[in-house]
Amino acid sequence: MAVKKPGGNDSKARRRVFLTLAAALAGAAIGIATFLRLTQRPPVEVPKPTSPTPTTIIPTPTPADISASRVDSVPIDPDDPKWNLVREVEFTLDPQAMVRPFEPSPGVKSVKVKALYDAENIAFRIEWADKIPDFGLDVDRFSDRCAVMLLKYPIPDELAGKAWMMGTPEYPATMLVWEARLQLEAEKGLQDITDMFPNIAIDAYPPYKGTVKEVEPKPIRIGEVKGEEVYLAAFAAGNPITKVRLERKPVEKIIGKGPGTIITARTQDANGKGKWSNGVWSVVIVKRLRASDKDQGEIELTPGNTYHIAFAVWEGSKGERGSRKGVTSLLTLRLE
């Protein structure tokens, strides 16, 4: 199966015009050019949000950047053969540079994306190159992550730049964030201090009586002893991320209305699966078409419609987290 990058043959003429314009802008003022790049984000290899789809193997009548085809049931495994039937599109990732702090040169340069949907769910398969998988299991380590952001379509031009930054109050963004650490915890349970430091020696944790060593071979795990939450502040406070972890979900469903506003949606019904092999992360993120948290601003998807979509990747070994990330421009998705 061939991989086609947007900005192929039939958009060459437009690209030339655009490059001339970009060169003129860059010559005029780097600051202004950077600002425009950030708000409108038309990088060389990625078409403008509204530009038509480039050459594809199966020609599609729609102008969306990504088209999701209908199947009987969507696969959750990134290695499922169903994915081989789907056209893959590659998008460049640029630094998020609207909100400080940011990483001027993100570690991951592009993502390859596929999409499928069935009567109930939509699934995205996201793939990127990453030499070392990171799970963020120490104070100085950060987990690899990727996210899909969905927004209503169309968003008026003057709001598009803002909405691209995790939504606005009028155009809330639904984000589905997959995280390597959550994947590990979904498979192996909450990662405890004994998983991070197998040789740790601790006299005792309240409210336990024995030492960590004494309870071997099976170390006591979080949640096994009543009353421990008091000593795990974020759990005691009911931090939503702790709930996602306790439910063993590798994907968190988030609603955003602008930078710094994101909340974990009430119903955590998104799912997914990520696998790393030979320097490549392949991740599937599955979301229900129906919005279960509409009142919180979750997007509802219906077949035949178009939506705005964007992707983000965080490279853990480069210390990327939160606002330090690589992002695509605001693209379009169509459910065929």
């Binding site: 702090p101 963020g136 299991l137 120490d138 104070v139 950060f142 650490r181 909450l190 990662q191 405890d192 201090i193 991070m196 979080i222 795990l232 502040a233 974020a234 759990f235 931090n239 991320i241 702790t242 972890r245 987290r321 939160g322 606002s323």
Partner: peptide, 21 residues
């Protein structure tokens, strides 16, 4: 996110790798 850990010069914010907060 640990931006606080990075920017407190006195290093008096700490990351809990178990609660991850």
């Amino acid at each position: 996110y640990r931006e606080c850990v990075k920017s407190c010069p006195y290093k008096k914010v700490f990351y809990n790798p178990v609660t991850r907060v």
